[in-house]
Structures are given as C-alpha cells and as structure tokens.
Amino acid sequence: MIVIGYSADPYGRAALEHGIAEAKLRQTTLLVINATSGESYADPRFAQSGEVHDVEEHLASCGVEFELTQPVGVDTADELLTAMDRPDAALLVIGIRHRSPVGKLLLGSVSQQLLLECPKPVLAVKPA
C-alpha cells in the first residue's frame, strides 16, 4: 500500500500522479490522505467537495484500488506517519516545496519532519 500526502495545490497533485504511477508499477493499493489541522477558518490546501469528486474520479479511471480520507483537526505530519506505521504501508509520496531556513523556523516544514522521521522510504516530488 502506498500512502500519498495530498493537498489541493500543484505539490499535492504532483504527489498524486507519482503515487499513482508507483502503485501501478508495484501493483498495490493507494491511501490518499488530505488532512487539515482546522486551525484556520479557510485552508486552501484542504480539498473541497468539488475537488474531492474530481480526484476520486481520476483515481477510479486509473484502475487503481484506492482510499481517500480527509481527517480534520489533526496534525498532517502525525497523520501521515501514523498511516505509515501500518504493516502494509510500503512507500510515502509527498510533494515538497522550497523553504528557506528562516521560513522553516517561522512557518515549520511538514516535509522535513516526514523525511527525517518516517522509518520507511519516502518519495519526495516536485511539480513538473
């Protein structure tokens, strides 16, 4: 099973594409997680119903078995790491963006935390 950290922006979509490709290659299933901490009133990375529908259609048309969850009120990194703890989870796919050191200090870096803490392989991709 491959876990994809999805967000409603080019980075998330890049992760989705690469994740689908890997799943087809390994002949395995997908778990797509689009989490939000719910901290802000509006979170542009959280996929709304229209986008969710589109993603599900896309996944279905790729012929891959998938599960799409949208946990609310959780920490994104923790959620993904917990998913990777499952015995059948083989790979984590995330989209990464560049963050300067100051940026990381002030705004945090989910991708850095995942890259360093995940015990299993992580595939970090960028949008084309």
């Binding site: 719910g38 802000s40 979170d43 542009p44 959280f46 609310v72």
Partner: peptide
C-alpha cells in the same frame, strides 16, 4: 467550540 472543518473560499 472551535470549528474544525475549514470552509471553502
């Protein structure tokens, strides 16, 4: 009673 689910803009 903090709302958790973000709204769509």
């Amino acid at each position: 009673h903090l709302r958790r689910r973000p709204a769509e803009i």
